[in-house]
């Protein structure tokens, strides 16, 4: 019942709010939700706190953009190429880090992401620190570009990606993969004793996560029409994917979506009411909120809903 209602609301949203700004917020929420859902596969279900997902986001954004700019390749094909590259990167990242546990792993991920960022910043061919402007094509679904003030086509595109990701996670949750992911999160040695090969399943989790993050990367590039290391590859971008998943509820299907709605909602609301971005008041509130949640509501919004439900019954 609830998913149906959610779907109806999500589909009707741009019809009800036809102004560019609310539609833009809708796009932001779906895009961030997609990244958080992807992060949740490794971080939430498998328990591997990977803080380097910008690698995949960046590969997605840069691959399609550079292919389009330099070779005129259609962004959809660029997106496909990006996901393949991202999954290869996930294998490499996984193989070099899967022996590491706990903080060693987290820091190794941060290191990887910073290395990739440094390489892009210093390579002129990749746009360097300046970034890449995506060439304008005719507006059409085939070209993955929609101009003008109506953001609805972008909204429906990203909503479709998000729905696919949620469906995949829903299926994974109920299958061998999902059980093995959670077993690895709970106790890696215990899982091994039951015949689970942690390296293999962590790798699968990484690849799934990389795939969706990469798709979000291509979408971001096609939506904003400009990418640079600061907006695509910086550490805070990695952190925010993780924060949304944790805030919403780790290892739950809908948690990352709720987290994205809450964080984007709050940051947009503070930005609009408190004015200019340079002031960073939105980020201050966001930071505070994260602390408050970590201390008082570590199971996130989903946990809060669960408690409310229990109280009603």
């Amino acid at each position: 019942m609830l998913p149906v209602a959610a779907a109806v609301i999500a589909l009707a949203y741009p019809k009800v709010f036809s102004l560019p700004y609310p539609q833009h917020v809708g796009v932001l929420i779906c895009m961030n939700a997609l990244m958080a859902v992807a992060w949740n596969i490794t971080g939430g279900y498998t328990g591997q706190v990977a803080l380097g997902n910008t690698v995949f986001f960046g590969i997605g954004a840069y691959t399609s953009s550079l292919l389009l700019r330099d070779f005129g390749v259609n962004p959809w094909i660029g997106m496909l190429a990006g996901t393949i590259l991202s999954m290869i990167a996930a294998v490499v990242l996984g193989y070099t880090t899967f022996r590491l546990r706990g903080y060693y792993f987290t820091i190794a991920c941060i290191a990887m992401a910073e290395i990739v960022s440094a390489i892009v910043v210093n390579t002129r061919r990749l746009g360097g620190a300046v970034g890449v402007t995506i060439p304008i094509r005719d507006a059409s679904l085939l070209n993955f570009q929609f101009h003008g003030t109506n953001k609805a086509p972008y909204y429906y595109t990203i909503l479709t990606f998000l729905a696919v990701a949620l469906f995949v996670v829903y299926r994974v949750e109920r299958s061998k993969l999902g059980y093995y992911f959670r077993a690895i999160r709970e106790d890696e040695d215990g899982a091994r004793a039951l015949g689970v090969n942690p390296a293999r399943y962590k790798l699968i989790a990484f690849m799934l996560s990389a795939l969706f993050t990469s798709v979000a990367g291509t979408f971001y590039a096609q939506y904003v029409m400009f990418i640079d290391p600061a907006s695509v590859l910086a550490q805070p971008v990695s952190v925010s994917m993780c924060l949304m998943a944790v805030l919403g509820g780790l290892g739950t299907l809908w948690g990352p979506v709720l987290g994205a709605m809450a964080l984007i909602g709050i940051s947009e609301a503070t930005r609009v009411t408190l004015g200019g971005t340079g002031q960073a008041v939105d980020l201050m509130i966001y930071g505070l909120l994260v602390i408050v949640f970590a201390v008082f509501q570590p199971t996130g919004l989903m946990g809060m809903l669960g408690k409310l439900k229990a109280r009603k019954e």
Binding site: L250, L283, G287, I291, P298
Partner: peptide
Amino acid sequence: ITKRILDAPRLTQIFATFGLSIFLRSLAQF
């Protein structure tokens, strides 16, 4: 902050100090 989450999962701890870093950074900017 951290005293209250001593026994929480590692991710909660990471989460809290990340929140703190974002807060302090933006506070300084503000």
